[in-house]
Simulated assay, not measured.
Amino acid sequence: MTDNQKADRPDRLSVEPEVVDGVRVVTMQGEIDHDVKDVLSAALLSEDSTVAPRIVVDLSGVTFMDSSGINVFVAAYQQVSEAQGWLRIAGAQDSVLRVLQLVGVDTVIPCHPTIEQALNA
């Protein structure tokens, strides 16, 4: 598949960040794989360490995730933990949640059914 074909795929990852009550909520839609790991990294990993990062990642619109996504989530978790912050996952569809559970990410990064539950945990 050429780069142009990848760019034309409707299932590529879209990322919409917003701040809700001082928490960065990153809503994602599409597929998380090797081709979009840089987009995912940019959305979660930060150069700014002046504020303890608090991040909720809304995966309700993500239909597929491979090990590339797992690696970025683990790196983001490590970064926010070192900065006395936290990372939570919300709304993962069954197929994505299953991947998180198979590798044990859900035992390290809290996974919640909804954004509201993740924000209030």
Rank of each mutant, 00 (worst) to 15 (best):
F73N: 09
Q79L: 00
L100Y: 02
T63L: 14
L97I: 00
R98P: 00
A52I: 00
L97M: 05
E47Y: 08
S95H: 00
S68M: 13
E47C: 03
I70G: 09
S46F: 08
T27S: 15
R98F: 01
S49C: 04
D48E: 07
V36L: 04
V108W: 14
I32C: 11
V62E: 01
G61P: 01
A83C: 00
V23M: 14
D38A: 12
M65T: 06
V25M: 13
D35L: 14
A43N: 06
T107N: 12
V105D: 06
L44N: 01
A92D: 06
G22K: 10
R98E: 09
A75T: 11
M28E: 02
Q84S: 12
V74E: 05
S41G: 14
P113M: 02
M65I: 10
V36R: 06
A52Y: 03
D106A: 11
H112V: 02
A83E: 00
V96N: 03
G85E: 07
S95W: 00
S81Q: 09
V99W: 14
S81C: 08
A75H: 10
S95A: 10
R24E: 12
F64M: 08
G61Y: 02
V103P: 05
T27P: 01
N71C: 15
G104T: 12
Y77Q: 15
A76T: 11
A43Q: 03
G61I: 05
S67P: 13
V39Q: 14
A92T: 08
I55Y: 06
D48W: 02
S41L: 09
V26K: 04
G91M: 01
L97H: 10
L87E: 00
L40C: 06
G104H: 13
